[in-house]
Design a binder for these strands. Structure first.
Length: 595
RNA sequence: GGUCCCGUAGCUCAGCCGGAUAGAGCAGCGGUUUCCUAAACCGAAGGUCACAGGUUCGAGUCCUGUCGGGACCGCCA
């Protein structure tokens, strides 16, 4: 599918480029102008027409022309285009374009022809992108904050896939650090408990959650009392492996409940084990580039650190790449820092061919962004791009009141509890109905409310309502197929010129915006734009539906006029298809009916 | 002390790689409506885009600084 058949804005932009090239051919403009900054966008003011082009203002300086004169010359060319009804010059040199009614009706027809591919784009040009998200430590069930990152990453991956990228969805399993040893000790305690021992309170520093009890029980079943008498170095690796496995299973289950998928679970431990110690190799490679040295760091300012010892350590020259200080790679006990293995991990992404990487992190890791980006620049010699999306914290509310979570470790509301209570669709939509870097209030009472206040319901209801219209339309158009593609094919033949209500035309224009929104959301890595667009589309659709109450001649189904009905159903089909497409990008269901 | 994020209507938030007179929902105000699937619709009002400079044809958007809120701050993950 070519872009311009799919995207009327791209089609008009192509005409603007043609007009510029025509002026170049005539000698009125110099050759070699940069056209990339030319945009065709919907103007804020409807009075300015359907689209506005900034070409004259962008080209005026390099061409040595006055913007308004250039705009006039371009407008004259554009007036000859079949798509374009009017082309005027306004303000500092905008070219305001009004498209013909036929052009808009054709856009709807093209959308119906594209079916589920409407909005698909090839801006990614098949490029490989690695999206890493969730990457929660395998030490317990996921909490709500993890859920936001999970949904964000999953939707972003969907978007990139839809826009022509080759997407790998990845989860980095931190199964090598000290925290999984803590997990093992915690599980060992539960193991002793399962054998009948009274373990009392879980000591500070260990994971107290009940979710480890089943791990203890299965250890007791597998080993009986045989582990009890052995020293820690003997049982720990065994218990650790079992516990990590069990926690990963819990996490995968939580992710499945949210409909979040990954293509690859990448084990940190495998960097040391299977890849011939990739961490060492990575450090050696950086050392060869002169980016590693032994040196001292100044103590951090502000809060003094109790046990600060000024010592010489192995440092990465992060400052060479825009970080504030150089970063240590070895702990005082001689083992690698988390950062060191994270460099190796990102190098492995690079080695696997990724020049585009996206990491989705919680906002509490914000202090880590610069050094990671510095590391990616270093291992890739500046050829790879790492975008790090921070998702802000989620505040759980119920009816406006914060949900009480005990400070005592272990008592928190898990993601799973929230999903089970309000449903996967509500969780996903609400978490995407906010920019990733804005904090999110998640109200458990509100998201199950059936009202306009609740965008999840409102958008899903838009889809269900459209489906309901089709069910009711059988009386007037009994031959209309139920299967969406077949139905769209039939409706594409409808006499669309019967759509003459201004609101109907406005809806068509809204539908024509969809491919543009998809591209913008994908290239900005901002899935929330899809959610907002869907809300607006649903709102406009509901409004038109409701107008039919007071003005029966505006209803979609007109008993004695099958042709008009067919034309209006074509519009409904467009709305339903785009709602379904957008909801699918967000990973939210598009229901046939609301219950 | 430093780094990062945020500051837009009474509230919750959008604002599309800088674009024309800054938008939506809710609440409040005025009116309409009891319906093809209902949980409504129309209209008016509401703003020093935190503040001060700068960049340019043009700044809510980019840069610098200040103020306010949040997160983080050798080796933890």
């Amino acid at each position: 599918m070519s872009q311009t058949a799919n995207n009327i804005f791209a089609a008009v932009l192509a005409r603007v480029h043609a007009a510029v090239n025509a002026l170049v051919a005539e000698g009125a403009l110099p050759d070699g102008l940069d056209l990339s900054r030319i945009l065709v966008e919907p103007p804020r003011e409807a009075a300015h027409g359907d689209m506005a082009a900034n070409a004259a203002m962008v080209l005026a300086k390099p061409a040595g022309k006055k913007p308004r004169e250039l705009a006039e010359a371009l407008a004259a060319k554009l007036r000859n285009e079949a798509l374009i009804e009017q082309a005027g010059v306004a303000g500092p040199g905008f070219i305001n374009l009004t498209l013909t009614r036929v052009a808009w009706l054709d856009a709807l027809r093209a959308a119906l022809a594209a079916g589920p591919d409407y909005g698909r784009s090839d801006i990614g040009r098949g490029e490989a992108v690695n999206v890493e998200y969730v990457s929660a430590n395998p030490t317990g069930p996921m909490h709500v904050g993890h859920g936001r990152g999970a949904v964000f990453g999953d939707a972003l991956a969907n978007l990139l896939d839809f826009t022509g990228h080759r997407v790998t969805r990845e989860y980095y399993v931190n199964d090598a650090g000290a925290q999984v040893d803590v997990l093992a000790r915690s599980a060992f305690l539960r193991y002793r408990e399962a054998l009948g021992e009274d373990i009392g309170l879980i000591p500070d520093g260990l994971y107290p959650g009940d979710y480890l009890k089943p791990v203890g029980e299965s250890l007791a079943q597998e080993f009986g009392p045989s582990l009890k008498g052995t020293p820690e170095p003997e049982w720990l690796p065994v218990v650790r492996t079992r516990a990590i496995e069990a926690m990963l299973a819990v996490i995968k289950d939580d992710l499945a409940a949210l409909n979040v998928r990954h293509g690859l679970f990448f084990s940190e431990r495998s960097l040391a084990d299977r890849l011939q110690n990739a961490v060492e190799a990575t450090i050696a490679a950086l050392r060869a580039k002169g980016l590693i040295y032994e040196g001292r760091l100044p103590p951090p300012k502000g809060q003094p650190i109790e046990d600060w010892e000024d010592r010489e350590q192995t440092l990465f020259r992060a400052t060479e790449f825009g970080d504030d200080v150089d970063r240590p790679l070895m702990k005082s006990d001689g083992s690698y820092t988390y950062f060191a293995s994270d460099i190796a991990y990102h190098k492995s992404k690079f080695d696997r061919g990724f020049r585009n990487m996206i990491d989705v992190w919680g906002a509490d890791h914000g202090g880590y962004v610069k050094r990671m980006q510095a590391a990616v620049k270093a291992v890739s010699d500046g050829t790879a791009e790492l975008d790090i999306k921070l998702v802000q914290l989620v505040r759980l509310l119920r009816g406006g009141e914060p949900v009480k979570m005990s400070k005592r470790a272990g008592e928190f509301v898990t993601l799973r509890e929230v999903v089970d209570e309000v449903g996967r669709d509500a969780v996903r939509f609400m978490m995407l109905y906010r920019k990733n870097d804005a904090p999110l209030d998640f109200d458990l009472a509100k998201v199950i409310e059936q009202s306009r206040d609740n965008p999840v319901f409102y958008v899903q209801y838009g889809h269900a309502r459209g489906q309901s219209v089709f069910r009711n339309a059988r009386e007037v158009l009994p031959e209309l197929p139920e299967e969406p593609t077949a139905r769209a094919d039939v409706l594409r033949e409808a006499p669309l010129d019967r759509l003459d209500d201004p609101a109907e035309l406005a809806l068509i224009k809204r539908l024509a915006l969809y491919p543009r929104v998809v591209e913008a959301a994908a290239s900005a890595h901002e899935p929330h734009r899809i959610a907002f667009y869907l809300y607006e589309l649903a709102s406009e659709f509901h409004a038109q539906y409701t107008r039919g109450n007071a003005s029966p001649h505006l209803r979609f189904i007109i008993q004695n006029d099958p042709l008009l009905t067919k034309a209006r159903l074509a519009l409904v089909q467009g709305v339903v298809a785009v709602l379904a497409s957008g909801l699918a990008l967000l990973g939210v269901g598009a229901p046939e009916e609301m219950r």
